[in-house]
Amino acid sequence: MTLGPKIAPPPELVWTQLQTDAETVRRYAELTADFNPIHLDPEFAKGTPFGVPIVHGTLGLNLVIESIERTFGTLPAGVSIEVRFSRPVPVGSIIRAGGSLRDPTTGTYEIFVETHDGQRALEGACVIGVPD
């Protein structure tokens, strides 16, 4: 555990926010080699249950990881994360990520990504650990 002695886990993670758009998603497609048209092609997306392009799920997950790193300065070794992608995010949405300490004895945070209207797009848990 790398928080260091006598440093208690903070009650909240630093909030991070991202305005998504077509360029954001195109960049993320380049980053992951995920060129699925459900993310990139409005015409294709019209024929899907979503009707519009949706953001890559791990684009939001990485926003949570940014929250963790901005909170702790660096990701402590041994960090584990479990999340469920609960709702698609239309491209063009503003998303924000954060987390709340749920168990100080294990350094477990409830983590999430939500859209501007508070709808959870991703939720789960992150175990940071506790100071030695």
């Binding site: 960049r27 980053l31 791990t58 997950l61 990881i65 940014e66 790193e69 660096t74």
Partner: peptide, 28 residues
Amino acid sequence: AHWTAIYGSSSATPDRLPSGLLVAAMME
């Protein structure tokens, strides 16, 4: 550069990449 264009550069240092880049690499 792709990462920084999306998320900014606050969690990267010259000696250490953002951990999210590992997640992107996992997906790729």
